[in-house]
Design a binder for these strands. Sequence first.
DNA 1: TACCGCATAGAAAGCGCTTGCTACGGCTGT
DNA 2: ACAGCCGTAGCAAGCGCTTTCTATGCGGTA
Lengths: 367, 367
Amino acid sequence: MTVTLADVAARARVSPATVSRVLNGNYPVAASTRERVLRAVDDLDYVLNGPASSLAAATSDLVGILVNDIADPFFGIMAGAAQTEIGGPGDGSGRAGGEKLAVVCNTGGSPARELTYLTLLQRQRAAAVILTGGAVEDPAHQAAMAAKLAKLADAGTRVVLCGRPPLPEGEAVVAALAFDNRGGGRRLTEHLLTLGHRRIGYVAGPVERTTTRHRLEGHRDAMAAAGLYGDDTTTEGRLANARDEDRLTVHGPYDRRSGYDATLELLRREPEVTAIVAANDTVALGASAAIRDRGLRIPEDISVAGFDDLPFSVDAVPALTTVRLPLFEAGARAGRLAMGKETPPPGGIATIAAELMVRGSTAPPRK
Amino acid sequence: MTVTLADVAARARVSPATVSRVLNGNYPVAASTRERVLRAVDDLDYVLNGPASSLAAATSDLVGILVNDIADPFFGIMAGAAQTEIGGPGDGSGRAGGEKLAVVCNTGGSPARELTYLTLLQRQRAAAVILTGGAVEDPAHQAAMAAKLAKLADAGTRVVLCGRPPLPEGEAVVAALAFDNRGGGRRLTEHLLTLGHRRIGYVAGPVERTTTRHRLEGHRDAMAAAGLYGDDTTTEGRLANARDEDRLTVHGPYDRRSGYDATLELLRREPEVTAIVAANDTVALGASAAIRDRGLRIPEDISVAGFDDLPFSVDAVPALTTVRLPLFEAGARAGRLAMGKETPPPGGIATIAAELMVRGSTAPPRK
DNA sequence: TACCGCATAGAAAGCGCTTGCTACGGCTGT
DNA sequence: ACAGCCGTAGCAAGCGCTTTCTATGCGGTA
């Protein structure tokens, strides 16, 4: 029924070993023999049995890319970039020689699914795994992840982090490419402060996500440095500041709906807000909609800012002030790292700069 | 080094066969034995060797989802929905029992890569394959695809089409869920005609893509039915109509940049245009930017419409008139079909309705 | 009491490939 | 002219699992 290596060997009048070597190209085979084998492969329409091959060789050509939300271009762009580096050009002959199978796995942000996918990938003896985007900070989960990754690395799977902070003990990992979320967040808020804003609302991402925390910390660093939230360091002062921070921060998922709802909430809590900083561009879009539905103008009445600089942000009206993350470049680099085509940065850790993009959605507050 | 079935068997003091049966749960095993085995599995931190298992059982738990552009939420939404049906909830125990590994593969719209991925999936003896989105209409490629899919089906892989028209001879396929692109396109243009528009520009997708052709045909059907492009059926008249159609149509990729450039081109060719229909929402966003950069207002000077109703479309300013496709539902259904959890529609073909969403970006043309 | 059948466990034969080792010419070097 | 090599090809032993077939022990029944 199905064609096997042995069939090809018979037709080419060579041993199975020779066919295998022709196909893998890691052993000298005379040109004439090779040609005969290749013709037999074509004639018989032979397709390698992946499982058998992986079993015998104890490795597979699977590369897994884990993303938190596949419907979010933030991940799509990174994953796509990584795939271009991993998949190779593809010759269309259907022969697929030397290709790796780059596949993306959607965790939906669930720690359990993240672990499950890792196990599944481990089962397949994946050649490499790329983890993208923020991590969940729950200690139990972090420990489980670290253990799992260590085991993967042990089994020869290359592990690369992309847009995710390094592990506590990062030995298991080939490389970690971390975005400068904190710095980006800080510069964004500094921009707003420079424009003269003082009461700034913050629509944050889900709690316990590193991305969320880092961006928020950047924001608060800037606020604190400006003496906002007060620099009253007495116990009472600190409490008051904390209350202030909390009042002006709302957490929610990274989607437009959350941005919409949170902004309405912020507006209710503090009508005097003159700017809203969103956890990312998608959230910013929802925030903008809420502001407009409230009958307010952007940026005249309220400034809005996002994060990521996704492609649609420049088309928002007005164009969104945001922080650009080089998602494509980072994804591509992660792909190369996973393939061993690029040497890891010193220490295995690289921080990727975030660039402030000032556009029309931010302006000085009205007097 | 690595733990094998035999190690588990030894520790549980049973035969490897018994361990295998406990893990696969398709053979009676006494409760006490099962428990002993399970404990041994946990103690040893055993992870099944996927390749070995697939080799012996001649099937794998891989399910491939092919998408044209992973950075496009159009595909992300479908793929994510399909994955939720396939991956199961995941128990977080890391045991990953009975799970399928749903993976998405990004073809980038390239026929060669599409074929390559199919070969790679065939190699892995994938349990199922879901093809999403429009197909390329090149006859050679179509034939190659049909052959490849037939071979996959032959090998026991379930093939499901989602948002893609059925194959010429669809026997190889479990089911085809096709969007009513033509009907949606027609109703969208009828809406514009009803508003009073007569000179309507069309920013189409890439040529040779089924999606592109169907949406465009819907548009032209509506135009023709309204007597636009003339109903002159003489040879000369037909030629004139065709020229008119071509002058008001520009093709390009499904991205914002293409929408921007094409709209500028359309405006140059025919300054009297009162509406622009875009191939999809992303393109519509680019088109809107171009219109605004030209100093024109939407919808007062020019109406704009998209297709797909992606989440961001409602947040555009003004909100985008578009055609809603139930992407999530379709993806989920494709996932269930791929898992054999749902019986295929009669004839294996289902057409999925497209619903017109009238919003602020379209209005009657100025007198 | 003797027999049959069911429930459960084990033995062993592969699944299709990779790869270390061996075998065999013909060439080169002295 | 002979030894030693290099370049190729084949042999055969697994890789770790699934599954068919067989073995065993037990309870129930005649």
